[in-house]
């Protein structure tokens, strides 16, 4: 199995909206490499014809009826907002 590189970690960090300094990248890369090396043992398992489990339950068709339920008040919706303006959540310039 291919070993994880510092560039891989940087790329993945970007996808996850995280950012690390060079030293941290190095540390994380070596920790991840060790973990991924361990979990790679699953590659020795023959899973031909085996379906992946995405739901362990044998449950299907769970629906709601299209009935209106009470929403929270605007004040409550905005209660935890780190920054707000004009009844909305304010975010910095989108780049």
């Amino acid at each position: 199995m291919k070993r994880i590189s510092k560039d891989d970690v940087k790329h993945v960090a970007e996808l996850a909206e995280l950012k690390f300094g060079e030293k941290d990248i190095e540390k994380i890369t070596s920790q991840l490499d060790r973990i991924l090396d361990h979990v790679a043992n699953i590659n020795s398992v023959n899973t031909e014809g085996i379906q992946p489990t995405s739901h362990i339950l044998d449950i299907k068709n769970v629906f709601r009826e299209d009935m209106v339920e009470e929403s929270v008040t605007q004040e409550f919706a905005l209660k935890n907002a780190p920054d707000e303006a004009n009844d909305g959540f304010k975010v910095p310039k989108i780049d």
Binding site: A13, L18, L32, V39, I42, N43, P52, T53
Partner: peptide, 24 residues
């Protein structure tokens, strides 16, 4: 970081989906 890596393009089949098969 581990999770994002396991789901990312090119690794999904090898990690996430394979793990779900072994889970079966």
């Amino acid at each position: 970081i581990i999770g994002t890596y396991c789901l990312s393009a090119g690794y999904y089949d090898e990690y996430y989906e394979k793990a779900q098969r072994v889970r079966t």
